[in-house]
Design a protein around this nucleic acid. Sequence first.
DNA 1: CCATAGATCGGCT
DNA 2: GCCGATCTATGGC
Length: 237
Amino acid sequence: MGRPMAAALPWRFFARDADVVARDLLGRILVHELPEGRLAARVVETEAYFGPAGRNPHLRERDDMAPGLRARLLREGDPASHSFVGVTDRNRIMYGPPGFCYVYLIYGMHLCMNVVTGPVEPPEPQAVLLRAAEPLEGVEEMMRRRGRPNLKPTDLLSGPAKLAKAMGITRAHYGVDMTASEGALRFEAGRPARSVMATPRIGVVGGEDLLLRYLVPDSPHVSRPVKPAGAGRRKGS
DNA sequence: CCATAGATCGGCT
DNA sequence: GCCGATCTATGGC
């Protein structure tokens, strides 16, 4: 056999609220073992999705969440979440236990990959969208799967659909347990990111002002860089 | 660098 | 029937 298999991040890691998991996933390693080889990438950008109002009373106990955000989620729920409308065939996995893979088709042609999160009691249908990562192992195979020549490493996994495609994610991964010890698709511990920044989520309708997108601000592998804090662009150095 | 159009189809009303 | 948790090519500056 090849290398010793590192432990998958355990079930408990994902049994926390989506914002906490989304932050904690930054710097962790997404791994997919394929016949063609091992694909590995460091997560640098995520988004948290909660559920409808009324299914999240446990948020009242949270003293580590911005009060405005907590109040909004308690009062209105998360209108951008696929679980906002209640159970459907597509979002059913979000209502199950944490640590499972949620894959969906977007714009008729792209797949996006999530991991289900949230406390078990009381339950809430949450997920974390994987938006960007830094390629570490199997770069050649990732490029082949992206099917575009001369792709720079920073363009390989810099978006949710790019990430899913390069990492070999298919609809067959819907409902896969990412915490299984022998599983091909899992997270490894890696090293948590040193700095984390929060911004509004990309491309959502509803909850546009909620700061539920998390990224490693100095990473060149994110889908969209953080807006410079100061004024317009510089010229030279 | 920025803005925009087109691709393409499953899920939900 | 409408529309989306996106990507890419193209054209302008």
